[in-house]
Design a binder for these strands. Structure first.
Lengths: 152, 152
DNA sequence: CCATTAAATGTTATGTTATAACATAACTTA
DNA sequence: TAAGTTATGTTATAACATAACATTTAATGG
């Protein structure tokens, strides 16, 4: 079983548990995300979708699938770059309470890394102390240069 | 001296120290941000700019001023909502090492609050340990409901 | 003070990202 | 199998942002 197959299987499992439907179209978009090396814009994904699956697809097709995947935590949206990528932690089962994305401005690579538990609880505490209520898990997007690009 | 005047004076001081120019146009856009109750989109600001200052202004005028103000740390861009607001901590002098924005999805209000120092250093540490180098101060955008909206 | 350069602004056009709105089809459930 | 719900197809357009080049204004050095 390949890496993508394993992740897809986990994603399907997740959907069954949540009582939501992993339709063919959603799976196809998930597949596109999984086979990419890095984050993609919605229109890049649309182009690939048209090539690989359905030549006359329109933007709402992609945006709807992406919205679904993001809601389910199977993909993430990087709002600072308007890009989308598959969640890198679908198969592992540590909670997704806080995530940091390290975005290399040089090569475009993204590294997804869990936020330290203590940092999360400090954040939660300062948020709660202001009476603010959030469902969402915080996503932090940090721009800079990755280890590899720093060498060169 | 009014609140906005005080902030504008601090902003000008900041620009002098940095050797950059607070031109009339930039000051006007800063003024617009300061007189708003909440974050605004670039096109909302453009409309206000046209009404108050220059009826034939075009998008680049606003985007250039906003880019400048954001670069100087005098304003922030909320990438999750494509909105802009004046920095709430121009006159105080604690460093802006990390900022959390609490965005109320109900009433649209935004609260800007400094990130706890220990949370910042934990983040920095996990970022550094991956060989990632960043100049930028992390901005975290957290969506939810504000204290006021939770009451109602 | 004037020439040169650099920085900012004016202006036109267009690129990119995202969604509204409504029609149709496919699933779900009783 | 009818009724309700969820998903998809399709057209059009809204919202956000920048490229490119002309012009003006400010800064700098002789």
């Amino acid at each position: 079983m390949s890496r993508t197959d394993r992740i897809l299987a986990s994603a399907e499992q997740h959907c069954r548990e949540q009582g939501v439907r992993m339709t063919p179209q959603r799976r196809q978009v998930m597949m596109l995300l999984l086979t990419q090396s890095g984050p993609q814009s919605a229109y890049q994904l649309l182009d690939q979708f048209k090539t690989q699956y359905q030549s006359n697809a329109q933007p709402p097709t992609i945006y709807r699938a992406l919205d679904f995947l993001v809601q389910q935590g199977l993909a993430h949206r990087l709002s600072s770059t308007n890009q989308y990528l598959a969640c890198d932690h679908i198969t592992c089962h540590h909670g997704h309470q806080g995530t940091v994305f390290l975005l290399c401005d040089d090569c475009g690579a993204v590294q997804e890394t869990p936020m330290a538990g203590s940092a999360i609880s400090e954040l939660q505490q300062s948020i709660n102390s202001l009476g603010f209520v959030t469902q969402q898990n915080p996503l932090l997007e940090v721009h800079g240069r990755c280890a590899n690009c720093n060498v060169h």
